[in-house]
Design a binder for these strands. Structure first.
Length: 586
RNA sequence: GCCCCUGUAGCUCAAUGGACAGAGCACCGGACUUCUAAUCCGAUGGUUGUGGGUUCGACUCCCACCAGGGGCGCCA
């Protein structure tokens, strides 16, 4: 937020270097890592090392300190800073606290829910996430994808990108045929139970078990797939009906999680165009048709002339002519770019599909699509159960989303009843829901994408410590003070009293938000914001405990009230990006 | 065999190549007549898997190795 002052100092440093024939090094600014002080710093080790390399006999650490001291003397008293120091090779510039406090607070309050928003970048990005399969379960493992994908969309949008939120639903494929086979043979005519996703899931598990146990079942399934391929009206009709059951269930889940999509693709929509593409690949000599004895394959390493095995072989069509995931993904990628004129296409898919993703992107590149290099696989690690057990419906090792939400909410309700017994049951329910969902989302977003999440009930239902409720509670406390302030928010003012260290720490963190949003969106890592939200909440709680607001002297009171309002806004904006509700009471 | 990810406090995790590697949980001891104690304060806890290298400076980058997980022709 202080780019102008930073830049001015940078120019002066460059001037100093030129007049003293010093190597010019671009300044790397950091915040000063000591609490209770607020400013920026840069170091002169690089410059000193550069001199050493040029043949000057210098001790780098000593020389860095000399340079820092020299620059400090040269800078004098630059605009916007109240104190400079040269320590251990670092040049520290301390902000004019009162002036910058006012600037940060005023900026936050003027921009409101847009505080932290980046300038429009004129770049359109599609993010594909969730990708549930119909006729199957929706468990806690799938939850990470939805939460991460949705948050990445919020993040990119807030950072200034034009985001298209896309879902890609697996409504056809071997898993669907297996389900249909079981339904036709053992459940024909049955209607789904109230919890549709659970009912669909149970039948799928049953289907898989039967296919393993029953001799001849696999042949029947294959025959059924061929009937689908011929678009046998009876099968198509059943497929439409049962597919709808899953889709209705998914809608409920997305509503529950408060996520939405701009566009939904279906695998069944790109199946035919995908097969067409496979023919094109064969005709152009990119794919080799080994049918009927083998599938249609793209020998990527051979085409690229790789000696080592890097991209291996991509199978694009089964030997019996039925489609695969790859068949459809190739044509879908093209459709996305053509339909939405994308600059970038992000796939939020778990890390196990990394090779597959690279194969798809590379095949598109070989086909000559220039945008293929703008496809990106955002890989995240899966959610396991304790003991590194993978969630699997066949093994019965799944935690269903519905069960998790119900358990978390009921636990939160118990706490709300104790903390806030006077609220209406409806209000209590609302708060409990916000807390429960927030806790679940935060536990996934506060872990780096490459880290495996181990799901266990006690951790998932722990609302203490570094978790969403802690952050939400800070927001509640700020809201509570503002509710009781009796009158309008004081007008902008420059604090006259010296600020407490906790106030400075809080303002410092708030001022970092715009930059952290850019950093998080560049790296596609919500973790940065999850951490900042927690740090802000902790700083606010410190401030809350040490600095009375409402009973303070009028001048101090006014200044602190504005700070409380700014903190509340910064917390709310960060939580909004994380997809977590910021309640008024808890 | 090839490729990818992970390895940091007892546990779960943070840490733009920078100053003293930080939080939470757990454990121990404190603080509600107060703007909401879903909070705060204090104490304990480290050879950043190992060995080299690059660098003024390495948890961070490079190489090798060790341990765990994952992927590698007709699942998605």
């Amino acid at each position: 937020m202080f780019e102008a002052e930073q830049k001015a100092v940078e120019i002066k440093i460059q001037e100093y270097c030129r007049t003293n024939q010093l190597p010019e090094i671009s300044a790397q600014w950091n915040s000063i890592p000591f609490s209770g002080q607020w400013g920026i710093s840069t170091s002169f080790f690089q410059m000193a090392a550069q001199e050493a390399r040029q043949g000057k006999a210098v001790n780098v650490a000593q020389r860095a300190q000399e340079l820092a001291a020299g620059v400090k003397a040269f800078l004098g008293e630059p605009e916007g800073f109240e104190r400079l120091e040269a320590v251990k090779g670092y040049l520290n510039l301390y902000f004019s606290t009162a002036e910058y406090t006012r600037r940060v607070v005023d900026t936050v309050l003027e921009q409101g829910h847009d505080f932290g928003r980046g300038a429009l970048k004129g770049e359109r990005v599609m993010v594909e996430y969730s990708q549930p399969n119909t006729h199957k379960e929706f468990h806690v493992g799938h939850l990470r994808n939805v939460i991460l994908g949705s948050c990445v969309c919020n993040l990119l949008e807030f950072a200034g990108f034009d985001v298209v939120r896309a879902n890609y639903i697996g409504d056809i494929g071997l898993h669907v045929i297996k389900w249909l086979w079981n339904y036709l043979k053992y459940h024909n005519g049955e209607e789904p139970a109230a919890d549709r996703v659970r009912w669909m899931s149970e039948l799928y598990t049953e289907a898989v078990r039967r296919i393993e146990d029953e001799p001849g079942a696999e042949d029947e399934v294959r025959a059924l797939f061929m009937r689908w391929d011929r678009r046998d009206p009876e099968i198509v009709e059943l497929w439409k009906k049962t597919r709808e059951w899953s889709l209705e269930g998914f809608q409920q889940i997305y509503q529950l999680l408060d996520v939405h999509f701009d566009h939904i693709y279906f695998e069944s929509d790109v199946e035919d165009s995908g097969k067409g593409m496979v023919n094109e690949l064969i005709a152009r000599g990119i794919a080799r048709d080994e049918r009927p004895d083998g599938p249609v394959i793209v020998k990527l390493d051979e085409i690229l002339g790789n000696q080592d095995e890097k991209y291996r072989v991509l199978v694009v069509l089964r030997s019996d002519g039925t489609s695969l995931y790859a068949t459809k993904d190739l044509s879908l990628a093209i459709e996305k770019f053509e339909q939405f004129h994308l600059d970038r296409s992000i796939y939020v898919i778990d890390v196990r599909q990394s090779l597959y993703m690279q194969q798809i992107f590379k095949t598109l590149e070989i086909m000559g699509y220039p945008w293929a290099k703008n496809c990106y696989h955002l890989a995240y690690e899966i959610v396991n159960l304790p003991g590194n057990v993978t969630m699997s419906s066949r093994e019965g090792t799944v935690v269903l989303l519905d069960d998790l939400m119900r358990e978390a909410t009921s636990r939160a309700v118990e706490i709300v009843k104790i903390k806030n017994p006077d609220l209406s049951p409806e209000k209590q329910g609302e708060i409990a829901y916000a807390v429960a969902l927030g806790a679940i989302k935060y536990s996934m977003l506060s872990r780096d994408n490459t880290k495996i999440v181990t799901f266990d009930w006690s951790t998932a239902l722990d609302f203490n410590g570094q978790a969403a409720p802690y952050i939400q509670y800070a927001h509640v406390r700020a809201s509570s003070i503002l509710r009781k302030m009796d009158g309008p928010l004081p007008k902008p003012l420059t604090p006259e009293q010296p600020l407490e260290p906790t106030e400075i720490a809080l303002i410092d963190l708030i001022s970092r938000l715009p930059r952290e949003i850019q950093r998080a969106s560049a790296d596609l890592r919500p973790l940065y914001l999850a951490s900042l939200a927690y740090d802000m909440a902790r700083a606010f709680n410190d401030f809350y405990n040490q600095c009375p607001v409402l009973p303070a002297e009028p001048c101090v009171r006014a200044s602190r009230l504005r700070l409380v309002a700014a903190a509340r806004q910064a917390l709310a904006n960060t939580l909004a990006i994380l997809g977590i509700t910021a309640p008024q009471a808890m």
